[in-house]
Structure formats: C-alpha cells, structure tokens
C-alpha cells in the first residue's frame, strides 16, 4: 500500500500506521463513523487532488476499496 495513503488513514482515524491494513473497515474500526468518513473523503480529495463520485464515497467501506478508488483516479 502507498505510504501516503497509510499515513493519511492513520492520521484521520488516529491509529498507528502499521495498523492500516486493507481489511480495516467501517465494521472493524469504531472510529470509522460517518463524521470521520467525511473527514477521510475530504482529506483524500484534497491530498490526491481527485474528485470522488457519490457512489465511490458510499462504496469506500474498507481500506482496500479506498486504495482501489484512489488508484482508479490517479491512473
């Protein structure tokens, strides 16, 4: 996983970078509530200079999907 994504996710959810694994999801992480989801999306869009669609934002339920969405936009 991209170090930049790892760092960003760790920062938003206030967890250690090594705990950022693809399986980390809204269900397993208490901190991943709707407000932090909003913060995550805002930060991702700003940091990678991309614009996610509403469906994508809805679909980002775990880190694996987040990485995939970012990669689609970057390529």
């Amino acid at each position: 996983m991209d170090d930049e994504i790892k760092e960003l996710v760790a920062e938003i959810f206030n967890i250690e970078e090594e705990d950022v694994i693809p399986a980390l999801s809204q269900d397993t992480l208490d901190n991943w509530d709707s407000l932090n989801h909003l913060k995550l999306v805002t930060a991702v869009e700003q940091e990678f200079n991309i614009s996610l669609t509403m469906d994508e934002i809805d679909d980002i339920t775990n880190v694996e999907k987040l990485v995939a969405v970012i990669n689609t936009h970057k390529s």
Binding site: T42, Q46, S51, M54, I57, D58
Partner: peptide, 15 residues
C-alpha cells in the same frame, strides 16, 4: 461549497 458533500452529508461549507 462542495456540492457533492452537500448532497452526501448536508455539508454546506467545504474545508
């Protein structure tokens, strides 16, 4: 405004 954020989260003001 981020129009999208308004529709998703009723967030009227962007960062």
């Amino acid at each position: 405004t981020s129009v999208k954020m308004y529709y998703i989260a009723k967030m009227e003001l962007n960062e």
